[in-house]
Amino acid sequence: MIVLIWIAEGTWRSAVDAARDQLPAEGDTEIRLLYVTDDHVAGAAHGAFAGLLGRGRPGRDPGDRVEEVAKAAASELLDAAAERLDRPVTRLHRHGRVEHEVVREADGVDLLVAARDGDRDRLGPHSLGPAARFVVDHAPCAVLLVWPAAAPGIESLPPPPP
């Protein structure tokens, strides 16, 4: 069995804990931890530098520093997730549109473990942000979707439409 755990800021602990609690401790389970860096921020910094800020100073592109910081942060997050899981894992760091990269990496795996990334105060469709909604809708495998904290009570269900 191949399990992919989507590691994202703010919700990674719940995804790792769910995988640790649900997967057998022994056996032939391969676990992959995936973190995706959205390159829009570095791209914006590169673009701003090239457009207005970078005239005559090609060695001072702030986008390079943003990329370095993002790489270090991803490595630290993957290491923390691996330590929390306390099992052998493969660490994957990808770049691009987060939701597309998660779906690509889910191809060929048996289970994707992900955490809700939207409204945590009530049950319903808004508990999934745009990236998680895309992943849930397009994942080519089974998905274990967990709450990043205790799930809201049933009384938080939205009322029926008029």
Rank of each mutant, 00 (worst) to 15 (best):
40 H>L: 11
33 L>T: 05
83 E>D: 15
54 G>A: 03
68 E>H: 12
89 V>G: 02
90 T>I: 07
55 R>T: 11
148 P>E: 13
115 A>I: 04
91 R>V: 03
144 L>D: 08
144 L>C: 10
105 E>T: 15
78 L>I: 03
102 V>K: 01
120 R>S: 13
97 R>L: 07
80 A>V: 04
45 A>V: 01
126 H>V: 07
86 D>Y: 06
116 R>Y: 10
145 L>M: 09
117 D>C: 00
99 E>L: 04
105 E>D: 13
146 V>M: 04
27 G>W: 05
44 A>D: 10
46 H>R: 14
102 V>C: 00
95 H>A: 07
125 P>S: 13
135 V>D: 02
148 P>Y: 03
87 R>E: 07
145 L>D: 12
69 V>E: 10
75 S>E: 11
57 R>D: 06
88 P>Y: 03
42 A>Y: 00
148 P>S: 05
98 V>L: 06
29 T>N: 09
81 A>P: 03
102 V>Q: 00
101 E>Q: 04
93 H>L: 09
59 G>A: 09
56 G>C: 11
58 P>N: 04
152 P>T: 06
75 S>D: 14
68 E>F: 06
147 W>E: 10
101 E>N: 00
99 E>D: 14
78 L>Q: 04
133 R>M: 06
97 R>T: 13
145 L>A: 08
36 V>H: 01
75 S>F: 06
64 D>R: 09
139 A>L: 13
85 L>F: 02
102 V>I: 14
53 L>W: 12
37 T>H: 12
103 V>D: 01
135 V>G: 00
52 L>E: 07
44 A>R: 06
133 R>V: 03
150 A>S: 11
54 G>E: 03
88 P>G: 06
101 E>Y: 01
